[in-house]
Amino acid sequence: MGRAEVCILKDLCKGCGLCIHYCPRNVLEWSDEINVMGVHPPKVVNKKECTLCNFCSLICPDLAIFIKEKLDAR
C-alpha cells in the first residue's frame, strides 16, 4: 500500500466534488484553499488507502486529477 501518488491540478478544478464523493477509500477531502476558479479543490488526506482504482481521474469532468504509480515504493 501507499504506492500511489494522487496528483491534483488545483487550478483546473471547478469544485463539483465527484472525486471526493465517489472515492471508495475516502482518500480525498475538501481543502481550505481557494483556486483561480474561486472554489475549494480537493486535497489528499488518506494517501496510504489509495488502491490505484483510478475512478477519481476517470470521473473528473475537468481532467484535474490523475494517479501516478510509484514503482519503487515496495
Binding site: K14, C16, S57, I59, P61, D62, L63
Partner: peptide, 9 residues
C-alpha cells in the same frame, strides 16, 4: 460537474 467533461475524458 458537467457530463461533457467525462465524455471527453
Amino acid at each position: 460537474g458537467c457530463g461533457n467533461g467525462i465524455i471527453l475524458n
